[in-house]
Design a binder for these strands. Structure first.
Lengths: 331, 331
DNA sequence: TTGTACGCGTTATCAG
DNA sequence: CTGATAACGCGTACAA
């Protein structure tokens, strides 16, 4: 037996609408009745039925977030920040983890449509055409948040992956004639593609040949970083620097070097990306491109709220700050 | 303009009920009409309205999860596993992060009541009376999952914190006359309380005095582990072993030792708890009590599904396996 | 300031 | 196999 407004109304001796007004803090209710109704609500432990309310108002107060990988601390930081900001505006977050699977992503977009979410945040690795079309058709206010989008009618908030990778490249070219890269999955990750672009830009600028054997493909896990380091070091005997596209892979690479008595940073420099908390607590501490999950979350929510309120948003692509932090794992 | 079953019905030239039957895979519809209706659904890009459905059926297909700390990899592993299992049974997860704040926890329980979740999973640090009462009043099928509960009418799934801590204690007493503890927040965490109990049991069994200066309180972060190690080592000059109640704090403690040229494990042994992925990739690798987030998630969901189906569940308190793994940071 | 009546989009019951 | 109709719980004109 679930308790409804009707029960509250009859017990309090008022009409349904009065109860509704009290619940929604309407000013058109006398102090007395307000108190009386609130008391009965407490007594009966009445709970609003969100489904009924959403059906009636066509507002779900839900924001859907699709992300790839709950084992990614940076993503979780951003998500936490999104959640906090959303809560303040009375929105609840509903998160779907795609693990990088396109099928899952589409599934979640669909599910969020059915739940009639008021806003949507896509932090997944890849922006496939299918995904983008599905989102566009839905007419839901949406922010893309793992990379830049060349579609002018869509809004993205992200770190400037290209510029950040260029910064790292400049730094590493100072240390060595060339450096190796542990990138993300090949056809899968916007962020990885963009960072790769930054690297390519600099190789080209310095007129250095970016050979295939300088590049290894990981999947953003510790383990793939470990294995990639092994491959890269075996294939490039004079290698002096590695740029890993996230911190986990960088930490994996460090572990490989340590296990094989390769001195860091004397023999090899290693740079990561993200600046997760753990990067400060390993030995040697990790040089990395820091970006703030907090910043990202704030910027996303700020713009999403504008979008949902039909306000104009200035830029199609918004960048959050990044900073190359040099620690013990390089130079 | 949102498209409803009505639009589908009129465009397909059938009645509302027929559309409903097709959507719900009723067998009572002819192949022909089924195909016709499905086609129009596609054409119109019709999406079910979950609110309306939930209102009518009184089933939300939602499972609420309340957890403390999205920066906890072990918790996130468990959550991922819960999500995967839930999806298979057509349930969606809605997660609320309390950050260990009681107020937040109560807020989420309330919110989940309003969303009429079909099931509830409480993985938060503390089981306050207020929280438990709120949950009980709601009549929602609930699993508690961070510690043991002495209330016989509630169900918990967790690692056996007491036994695990006893295992570690036995191991460390083999190495040294006493050991220090980096525990979790004092009045806040069931898991921490239970692990403390295990330690106390063994100190008592071996008739050794568990002095206050052997214990430092952290908050499950790297940083608190680092600071705790400093305090413990300063206050106990002959200290040879530390047991941290999670891996992050253990890694922080290791970092402190490394920074201060204290040799691990020669001068001091360090043991963590959880067995997060990073514990294998730091140097020295971390000895720790491994528990599987996957196991935990599976066990939780299995029992929650039974509970929701009103089936009997055998035990009030279900334990998942744990295993003390000795790596380079100890002996 | 309060109450009445309708409709949101769906499913379930019943009749055909 | 299909269709009409009531009901789920709430918010909001409109009336009082």
């Amino acid at each position: 037996m679930t308790i409804t407004m009707k029960d509250v109304a009859s017990k309090a001796g008022v009409s349904l609408s009065t109860v509704s007004r009290v619940i929604n803090n309407s000013t058109l209710v006398s102090k007395e009745t307000t108190i009386k109704v609130k008391k009965t609500i407490d007594q009966l432990d009445y709970q609003i039925n969100d489904s009924a309310r959403a059906l009636r108002t066509n507002i779900s107060n839900l924001i859907g977030v699709i992300g790839a990988g709950m084992d990614n601390p940076f993503l979780m930081n951003a998500l936490k920040s999104i959640e906090t900001k959303a809560l303040k505006k009375n929105y609840n977050i509903i998160y779907g983890d795609s693990d990088g699977e396109l099928e899952q992503e589409l599934y979640y977009v669909n599910m969020f449509k059915q739940k009639k979410v008021d806003g949507l945040i896509i932090m997944t690795a890849n922006f496939s055409d299918e995904l983008i079309n599905s989102v566009k058709r839905s007419n839901i206010s949406t922010i893309f948040a793992s990379g830049y989008l060349d579609q002018t009618d869509l809004l993205s908030v992200t770190v400037n992956n290209i510029k950040a990778a260029e910064d790292v490249s400049d730094y590493l070219f100072d240390l060595s004639d060339y450096f190796a890269i542990i990138r993300g999955p090949y056809n899968d990750s916007v962020a990885s593609k963009e960072r790769m672009q930054g690297v390519k830009n600099k190789y080209k600028e310095y007129n250095i040949d970016l050979k295939d054997k300088y590049i290894s493909e990981g999947n953003f896990t510790f383990e793939s970083g470990y294995k990639s380091a092994e491959i890269l070091l075996n294939n490039n005997k004079d290698l002096k620097a590695i740029f890993a596209f996230n911190d986990q892979m960088a930490i994996g690479a460090i572990k490989y070097c340590l296990d094989n008595k390769i001195k860091i940073p004397e023999e090899i420099s290693i740079v990561g990306f993200d600046g997760i908390e753990a990067s400060k607590y390993i030995k040697p501490t990790l040089s990395t491109v820091f970006q703030s999950g907090n910043d990202l979350g704030s910027e996303i929510m700020e713009n999403l709220l504008k979008l949902m309120a039909d306000e104009n948003v200035e830029n199609d692509n918004i960048f959050i700050p990044h900073k190359l932090i040099i620690r013990e794992s390089s130079i």
